[in-house]
Design a protein around this nucleic acid. Structure first.
Length: 271
DNA sequence: AGTGCGGCCTGTCCGC
DNA sequence: TGCGGACAGGCCGCAC
């Protein structure tokens, strides 16, 4: 389950392998992802040199000589660098073969991810043009949240999971950040004070930064072949802990559905 | 415009 | 032990 920290970790891991490399071919074994892989990609990619590897929210952006690859890992996607001779296994949907004999392999059991291509300004792409600020940037502050939430009634948890408000905050981190900031997940955004928004913005930054330092570890049933355990799981205060005692006050944590998402909070610590 | 929700997918887990 | 069904999650795109 790639969250922003894992996408960032992926980006950092891929960069030395991809930067300045030339693409030889594209192999698409399964083109039906979140959106179909563009049919012209097979013609567009060969000869392209990858010049830059960026991240916007949970999107990876591979800037090439004459276009940009937009990759999202969805729920279950992963990217690996392998020798191009490595046999493909289940859910290895796409290979981008490089001239140096390596390959970037996209694996995604649930196929919620996507691989798209644009030759225009990538920030004007439909998927990116309306995205909110990066949570770790200076523009994401308590003041920002306060100002854009006046007069609105959405529950705060839904609000911070909205990519147009701020990118990269998924269900797990939303739960954790609200607990850390002491804010009830259902609280209407228009009624939250500037002071609380400052706490919340800081909580989001802190949690994401910590998770990146952990190597962007996935959570729950992490069945990576490397057998890497979920380090960040040990730091979870509320997510996945419904009915268990709050670490702060021992009150039984409450679990509800909010916007069809599992939501866990402490009735005493969060108001 | 703001808000809420259905749908896309497969692996895992639970109860029978 | 096998099987069906609920659930998990990001996030677009639609309906109100």
């Amino acid at each position: 389950m790639p969250e922003l920290p894992e996408v960032e970790t992926t980006r950092r891991g891929l960069t030395p392998h991809l930067a300045k490399q030339t693409i030889q071919t594209l192999i698409a074994r399964q083109t039906r992802l979140r959106w179909p892989i563009p049919t012209h990609l097979k013609n567009a990619l060969p000869g392209q040199i990858i010049t830059q590897i960026d991240r916007r929210g949970k999107y990876l952006l591979l800037t090439c000589t004459r276009g940009t690859l937009i990759i999202h890992l969805g729920m279950s996607g992963s990217l690996r660098i392998l020798l191009k001779t490595t046999p493909a296994t289940k859910h290895d949907h796409v290979d981008i073969i490089l001239r140096n004999g390596t390959c970037l392999r996209f694996n995604d059991p649930r196929r919620f991810g996507c691989i798209l291509w644009t030759t225009d300004d990538v920030n004007k792409h439909d998927l990116l043009k309306n995205l909110g600020p990066e949570p770790l940037s200076r523009t994401f502050t308590g003041d920002y949240l306060y100002n854009i939430s006046r007069g609105r009634r959405t529950p705060i948890k839904t609000f911070i999971m909205d990519g147009q408000i701020v990118v990269g905050v998924g269900n797990i981190y939303a739960n954790e950040a609200l607990f850390k900031a002491g804010i009830h997940p259902k609280k209407a955004v228009g009624k939250i004070t500037l002071d609380d928004y400052k706490k919340l913005a800081n909580a989001i930054k802190k949690i994401l930064t910590t998770a990146i330092k952990q190597g962007g570890t996935t959570l729950r049933n992490f069945t990576d072949s490397n057998g890497k355990p979920g380090y960040f799981k040990q730091l979870l205060r509320v997510y996945g802990r419904g009915k268990l005692p709050c670490y702060i006050c021992q009150t039984q944590l409450k679990e509800i559905r909010l916007g069809q998402r599992s939501t866990v909070y402490c009735t005493k610590c969060q108001s």
